[in-house]
């Protein structure tokens, strides 16, 4: 059986909120290392990969591998019933028909119990190769969100170029063009504002802004976002969570000209 208690229901709420517009029906794969999810969007352009490690829960118990097939719209409805300070416990039997969600108030004696019917989801798992990226950029998540939202007003796609000059986000549209360049930057007082660029080779790739704006819905999960780029491979957009957990998005580049 699965029993996973999360001190902050809000964390799970935010994760589901961040991915629900990208993917609809997902398997939450539970085993003794934690709860993982991998799902592609309908058009097979983007891939979501979430890992909530067992250390993120207290207690965490999962005796055998269980795939919880959940519709995220249904999950969102139920998670709305949790208050942000509530403690969340996910429960399921070994061959479950439902997943149970229990919300407990830390301050009062309220206990709310919900269940969601599970779905049989035939999901293909993709093998994500270990990649030595040509450029890795860590930057404030809010800054990345702002850049994507600003540029989508002008164009459908953005080129991300990383060189020794810094990282340049540029777009061209019908009304004109826009570009934002960031250089490495250290803020001693506010390290969450740092921009760190590690580059082993110059990279230049073009991506659909619609997807990037969608990924940025995860901005509330982490102060910083990490962008990993190599020429001609998918972009990795990573939000790190506590206890070595993470929410990652992969986006296939635009190709040709």
């Amino acid at each position: 059986m699965l029993e996973a208690r999360l001190e902050q229901a809000n964390l799970f709420k935010k994760v589901v909120d961040a991915i629900k517009d990208l993917v609809q029906d997902c398997n939450f794969d539970c085993n003794d290392s934690g709860i993982a999810l991998q799902a592609m969007d309908n058009s097979h352009v983007a891939l979501v990969s979430m890992m909530l490690r067992s250390e993120s829960f207290a207690p965490f118990r999962c005796d055998r591998n269980i795939a919880l097939g959940i519709n995220l719209t249904s999950l969102t409805k139920v998670l709305k019933c949790a208050q942000s300070d509530d403690i969340l416990t996910l429960k399921a039997e070994d061959a479950p028909d439902v997943v149970e969600l229990v919300f407990e108030s830390a301050e009062s004696d309220r206990i709310s119990e919900y269940s969601i019917k599970l779905m049989d989801i035939d999901q293909e798992h993709l093998g994500i190769p270990e990649t030595d990226y040509g450029a890795t950029i860590s930057m404030p998540a809010a800054e990345f969100q702002r850049i994507c939202r600003d540029l989508i007003a002008l164009s459908e796609s953005v080129s991300i170029e990383c060189s020794k000059e810094g990282v340049k986000f540029a777009c061209q549209g019908d009304i004109g063009s826009g570009a934002v360049t960031l250089r490495q930057h250290t803020n001693v007082d506010k390290p969450e504002m740092n921009v760190e660029i590690n580059m082993s080779e110059p990279v230049s790739l073009t991506f659909s802004l619609k997807y990037l704006v969608n990924f940025c819905k995860a901005s509330g999960l982490s102060n910083q976002v990490r962008l990993c780029l190599s020429n001609e491979v998918p972009l990795l957009v990573e939000y790190s969570l506590a206890n070595n957990s993470h929410l990652r998005f992969y986006l296939a580049p635009k190709i040709g000209d």
């Binding site: 796609s157 992969y250 190709i255």
Partner: peptide, 14 residues
């Protein structure tokens, strides 16, 4: 214009 790549052409099925 540029075409959109498919994530499955980069990450093979397990």
């Amino acid at each position: 214009g540029a075409g959109q790549g498919n994530i499955m052409s980069f990450f093979g099925k397990k």
